[in-house]
Amino acid sequence: MKKWILVLFAMLPSMAMAAAVSVPLDKANNDMSDQASLQNGAKLFMNYCFGCHAAQYQRYERVADDLGIPHDLMKENLIFDPEAKIGDLMVNAIPQTSAAAWFGAPPPDLTLVARVRGTDWLYTYLRAFYKDDSRPFGVNNYVFPSVGMPHVLEELQGIPEPVYQTKVVDGEEKQVVVGVKSDGTGELNQEEYDDAVRDLVNFLEYSGDPVKLERHTLGWWVMGFLVIFTIIVVLLKKEYWRDVH
């Protein structure tokens, strides 16, 4: 009985996350081995997200080294604080109390957001903003209704108009937002915007687990060693027991 109680408690976080998702999620299909994608994701993060959201568990230097960005280019193009050094943590200067007043809550640190939310959730969420004049920033989000965050990528996507579908909610037919369609005023077309969001999500996944690729590579080496070691042990066992039999 105790065993099953422990299993249930272990499952609660994932069950809560699953319950929070009320719309189908699109597959991010990002690739952490794509260095160009990670570099573009870092650029998008620093230009569009870092003004409000920190990545305080990362260092500029580590990001530059992992993503193949020379330190001088990192300092010139992706470090906006003139007082910051290449070895500093990636923190921003937005006052938390002011941010809470502006957005309703302090913007969360995004270092581990991909591990908490999942890449598919992030990919869908960043493409789910739609025009809603009733909201303080003029936008809403059908993945995260009543979101307090502005649509920071609007200049890339354009103004996203909501796409409605009739669904039965609480026993009544209602018009529900199930997607968005850009008005075409953005810098990118739909495919390019999806790719840009994928790059940003790719960077956020890297940020939450910088050693993932290294760990996977090391895992293959370990598996190879174990296979070779097993073969050697079997051959030795046969040699040692040959005289006995």
Rank of each mutant, 00 (worst) to 15 (best):
K2H: 10
K2Y: 07
K3C: 05
W4M: 13
W4N: 14
I5T: 13
I5Y: 06
I5N: 04
L6G: 10
L6W: 13
V7D: 05
V7Y: 09
F9V: 15
F9S: 10
A10E: 08
A10N: 09
M11D: 04
S14I: 07
S14W: 09
M15V: 13
A16W: 09
A16E: 07
A18N: 14
A18I: 01
A20I: 07
V23M: 09
L25R: 06
L25H: 04
D26A: 13
D26I: 05
D26E: 14
D26R: 15
D26T: 09
A28N: 07
A28C: 15
N29L: 12
M32L: 15
M32F: 06
S33G: 09
Q35E: 06
A36G: 09
S37C: 08
S37T: 04
Q39M: 11
N40E: 11
A42S: 05
K43H: 12
K43N: 13
M46Q: 05
Y48P: 00
A54V: 00
Q56V: 05
Q56E: 15
Y57W: 04
Y60P: 04
E61P: 00
V63G: 06
A64T: 07
D66F: 01
D66V: 02
G68K: 02
G68Q: 09
G68N: 08
P70T: 10
P70I: 08
L73T: 03
E76R: 14
N77S: 12
F80V: 04
P82H: 09
A84T: 07
G87R: 12
M90G: 02
V91Q: 08
N92Q: 11
I94T: 08
A100L: 09
A101S: 11
A101P: 05
W102M: 04
A105I: 09
P106S: 11
P107T: 10
D109C: 08
A114S: 15
A114W: 02
G118T: 01
Y123W: 05
Y123A: 00
L126N: 07
D133P: 04
S134P: 01
G138N: 01
V139E: 04
V139S: 00
Y142F: 15
S146R: 14
M149L: 06
M149E: 04
P150H: 00
P150Y: 02
P150M: 04
L156N: 05
P162C: 03
P162N: 01
P162E: 05
K167L: 15
V168N: 10
D170A: 15
G171H: 11
K174W: 00
K174T: 03
V176R: 03
V180C: 01
V180L: 03
K181I: 08
L188H: 06
N189V: 09
D195W: 04
V197D: 02
V197E: 00
V197M: 01
R198P: 03
D199C: 12
L200M: 03
N202E: 07
F203W: 06
D209W: 13
D209H: 15
L213K: 14
R215Y: 02
T217V: 11
G219C: 05
G219L: 10
W221P: 05
G224L: 10
F229V: 13
F229D: 14
V234G: 03
V234N: 05
V234P: 02
L236C: 10
L236M: 12
K238R: 14
K238H: 06
Y240A: 12
D243L: 12
H245V: 14
